[in-house]
Design a protein around this nucleic acid. Sequence first.
DNA 1: AATGAATGAGACTTCATTCAT
DNA 2: AATGAATGAAGTCTCATTCAT
Lengths: 207, 207, 207, 207
Amino acid sequence: MAKKGDDPSARERILLAAERLFAELGFDATPTSRIAEVAGVPKGLVHYYFRRKRDLLTALVERLPDERIEPAAVVVPGDIAESLRRLVAELDRRLSASQVLSHLLWREADTHRAVRDALRSRYDVLVNQVRTVIIAAAGAGSLALADVDSAAALLALAVSYRHSVARHAEDTPDGPDEMERELTFIADALTARAAAPRESVPSSGLD
Amino acid sequence: MAKKGDDPSARERILLAAERLFAELGFDATPTSRIAEVAGVPKGLVHYYFRRKRDLLTALVERLPDERIEPAAVVVPGDIAESLRRLVAELDRRLSASQVLSHLLWREADTHRAVRDALRSRYDVLVNQVRTVIIAAAGAGSLALADVDSAAALLALAVSYRHSVARHAEDTPDGPDEMERELTFIADALTARAAAPRESVPSSGLD
Amino acid sequence: MAKKGDDPSARERILLAAERLFAELGFDATPTSRIAEVAGVPKGLVHYYFRRKRDLLTALVERLPDERIEPAAVVVPGDIAESLRRLVAELDRRLSASQVLSHLLWREADTHRAVRDALRSRYDVLVNQVRTVIIAAAGAGSLALADVDSAAALLALAVSYRHSVARHAEDTPDGPDEMERELTFIADALTARAAAPRESVPSSGLD
Amino acid sequence: MAKKGDDPSARERILLAAERLFAELGFDATPTSRIAEVAGVPKGLVHYYFRRKRDLLTALVERLPDERIEPAAVVVPGDIAESLRRLVAELDRRLSASQVLSHLLWREADTHRAVRDALRSRYDVLVNQVRTVIIAAAGAGSLALADVDSAAALLALAVSYRHSVARHAEDTPDGPDEMERELTFIADALTARAAAPRESVPSSGLD
DNA sequence: AATGAATGAGACTTCATTCAT
DNA sequence: AATGAATGAAGTCTCATTCAT
């Protein structure tokens, strides 16, 4: 039972084990003793590094990878659909690395405020990312902001839904196709308006 | 201490207490003793009616209200936006009655298969409802099915999201407005296409 | 669910179920609810007939079949071995009918005095039976009483052992043969002494 | 409340308490809380060392003292009775140390396979011990093996019976005398055959 | 006579957390 | 710094028994 100087440090192994187990079993249903076991460390060490169990959750949230994507990397000027497609592909790539964590967040969101805040902030980042890409692809000023907001919110919802709640493969056999269809629907709607802007959109007063 | 002929029966009170507490604290974090306390029954009675704790969850899922809505009640022929608006309003009205339950479903979905199935099936019903209303409002045949599917899925997502995960009031101050904006976005997109159908939509090969 | 006037009365079915379950699972490990279930009667009825659980045990003990055997039926004058062999065969026949009960008795003997007394008395009856048969077969006066007592005790032990503790078939594959061998050993010893009585046996002063 | 460096370690005290209580009340009727109480340790510690209650039983069985006795220590060449008398005395001395445990074994034998196996194996050891002593006392070859087997089985039964099931003092007031009488009966039978071997013993094919 | 809802004590067990070493 | 023994609160669940009907 090697303890300390291993490849991933003991502390790191504890976090990895906790991430996996929390996502798999839920926070409450995961005993710290099980975490120690999976991490291959003595039970005492878990509480040595993270005094209370909830400190593990906090630490996990603070380690969340940054999902900000450089718009330039995915934008195809003039082609909103393709731009969004590339954005989603890139998000997929990155999110899959921390998929279990995303999932965990949704589950524990309302019992633990720290988690709720982290989740909310991630969602906001996501919406903004989509907005930025849409605007960059469509050309600044060519679209009503309200439309962009709606489109961004809807796509963010679809993406985030796929990466969190609906992660059970057997439940969403048509996952990718559905996403593609919805994405296209949104992009087409935006493209149509860029060509012939409508003023019938009720002004929501919200930026 | 007569327990039977009371306002709601003892069994019913237990279910109500469980529903509330599960949604509030989560399934794992709710002690059966607390359920008994809130229901005003002795601890033993909880297990008399529901031998294991998880049986409470199952019973709760089986009590889910039927959310099917008669399309005729909300459809305004020719006006997709208004039709959807009325549908959403009606759904809101009905769902709010079991909001905590909806919320509970999302939380426990992946630890408990029975819950997952119930959730999935509710979502499917919702999507179909939206589809039906869209078609009835637009007039049969005037829209590409793929568009209708996409629109239905996106709106269902938004509705269901609002009623379940994002139920924390403080987190979604702009809830209703956002929903209105997204609804309008979707309706407009569909209306535009009904007027000038596009064939650029990639055929997804589905349905 | 027929309740009352059935072939075996409800009360009888309860006793039968209890006998079976007590022997199978042990007294403490058998819930009265299970007894009701196996007996096919409502739970309340068990306590209606037998207020406390232990009353079931008492009733069972009082139902013990009488194992007294008419010596004349098995004795072959002059042949102790054959006489004992027939006695054992007859005991086997009778005891097998209440084997589970015998077994139960041994298990619960020291937690329940009523059972202990019943058990002790059955054992005494058994020893006496063997004594009587030996004396009848050997001819009165031809054997030292002390020898007869020893032989009777040893054989009773072997019989009772076989019918109670060692009832697990897989544990005693050689059961019958062993019994036959021991029986012959004892009979031969007695026969030898009847022929040439020894006085070296220490007088025990008991009966 | 230092628990460790005490006279017997906490773990040991738990085992001692369990042994006593199981034998006294029976396994099922002994609450672990009572064990903790008698052992003078907090309830949690019992389950720290023995996760499930039945692990206590297993541990107890594994601690059974070895009852093998060096034949040379008790054999009096040429005197089977005296040899057996000394063997029994020695067995008594050793078994009394774990009498409650022996008793416990018989009680729980058929609900717990581990116990059953331990019991069976102890019995086999006992029978062999008696056999060895008989042969050593009588002189090799002077007795038919079948006779030796029968005698050994009968004596082992008597010894084991006295040390387990029939341990209630009031139930066997004549215990020692009876044992002496039976022992003598068996020894005499063997001695008689050594002098004038009989071939009438049915060959059982076993041994 | 018969029933099954109701009761509450208490059993086993799990677990986060503390602490001496 | 690290460990694993120790602690006790609390949780789920079982069950004999009572009782109103």
